[in-house]
Design a protein around this nucleic acid. Structure first.
Lengths: 229, 229
DNA sequence: TTCCAGATTTAGGCACTCCTAATCTGGAAG
DNA sequence: CTTCCAGATTAGGAGTGCCTAAATCTGGAA
């Protein structure tokens, strides 16, 4: 019953909880029950129950009424699932004709079914990529991950020319919209105008102007290329 | 609540039951509870329970104490799963370095997770194959399947030269053994000697002699190529 | 300091999928 | 035609994972 190297496989649900909590707890934050419920589209009471069970199994640290964090074991499990997800996405785009904006749901189901062997073979034929089609970094086999710096386009000054690096969105309709206006990782984008108080942002992509909401701008993470006013 | 075209997805377990019952009921036979339990490695009582539930859902015809058969809807669902399984096997062998004797387990998990879209894309890049790496025919999208004639090598006369067409086995160890002596779909095999009363069979493959048990001979399905005594 | 709104947890249910133990049944043997 | 038993079913239980409704807690406003 040692906590190390026990490889009883986790269920689909458990993997989803761990992934969600990983996303909600950057740098030592704690995740609230309601945040998890929100992300997974479950009732808060269901989350309370699962959190209790996962704490007992040593995957989470839970302070009742305060929040949860992953244990080291939980973190490793979460990163294992994330690695699978992102490699599957990269594989489906590279070899099976998926577009980067439609691949998420398929990967969401496959990540719970593939063996380590299969994922590593995908990684091999892909040449061990460091990011997936959304620009998200792929953790390595040991669970190491490094997130290259990037800034939401909603926080960059007007007049700046940027390269889109990451699209932090999983909703299929939003993704399809983002792709439809020419935005994809690697795209050059000019920040034309930013209205104050979380107002709309005007950008130029492939010579075309588009106005996007602040919320959408928040998921478009970029690196500056220089001024171009 | 119509029986037609309802597409609430079936669970993993349900798909496994339907596949098992499909295998156990060639041409109108009925499958016994114990046969299903055996194939799925479950307690007979568990099968009774599930069979009851699946009958109520219209996927099975159950005559208590007699046996079960698939309804038309159950048959279609079984063939859908079998199509997925066999195309996944073919894909993994063709593109991801799996060997035909080790691919079964991976496909067994993936068949419950892939979308129709993904399976059809695999079928496309494979060029719509008609058989999987074990020689098993792949049902088409409408559920039509035709099983080419073949005879277990255990039923063929001594001295005959045959081509191995199908290996009806899913146990990994047995498959690995079969592959290790040079047997695979397409291999030329000479039936050297067959001892009576289900005795051992001596065959020659790739110039090498091997003695196999009758049980193993039963899963090796062949077509005759001619005499060679 | 008290009190309340909102978040959280507990209580009680239901469906699924499995188990063991007890009971029942249909057909074969006497 | 009765008895018996292998095989099938029912009974009762456990774990997962979700739900709604009812307590309960917490932190900030009055």
């Amino acid at each position: 019953m040692n906590a190390v190297a026990q490889h009883e496989p986790l269920t689909r649900s458990v993997e989803d909880y761990l992934k969600a909590i990983y996303r909600l707890t950057p740098e030592g934050r704690a995740a609230a029950t309601s945040e998890i419920a929100n992300l997974l589209e479950l009732a808060p009471a269901s989350v309370s129950g699962m959190v209790k069970r996962l704490s007992e199994h040593g995957l989470l640290e839970h302070v009742p009424y305060k929040g949860v964090q992953l244990t080291e074991e939980g973190r490793r499990a979460a990163l294992r699932t994330i690695r699978r997800h992102r490699l599957i996405e990269a594989y489906l785009v590279a070899f099976l004709g998926y577009s980067w904006d439609t691949v998420h749901d398929e990967a969401e189901r496959l990540e719970h079914a593939v063996s380590d062997q299969l994922v590593e073979r995908m990684a091999t034929v892909l040449g061990h990529p460091s990011v997936d089609p959304h620009g998200d970094p792929i953790p390595d086999v040991d669970g190491a991950i490094h997130e290259p710096a990037s800034t939401p386009i909603s926080e960059l000054p007007e007049g700046i020319l940027v390269e889109l690096r990451r699209v932090d969105e999983s909703d299929p309709e939003r993704l399809r919209y983002i792709a439809s206006i020419g935005l994809r990782p690697g795209a050059r984008v000019l920040v034309v105008e930013r209205k104050p108080f979380h107002g709309p942002i005007t950008i130029e992509v492939e010579g075309q102007s588009h106005v996007i909401g602040h919320e959408l701008g928040h998921v478009l993470r970029c690196v500056p290329l220089g001024e171009d006013a």
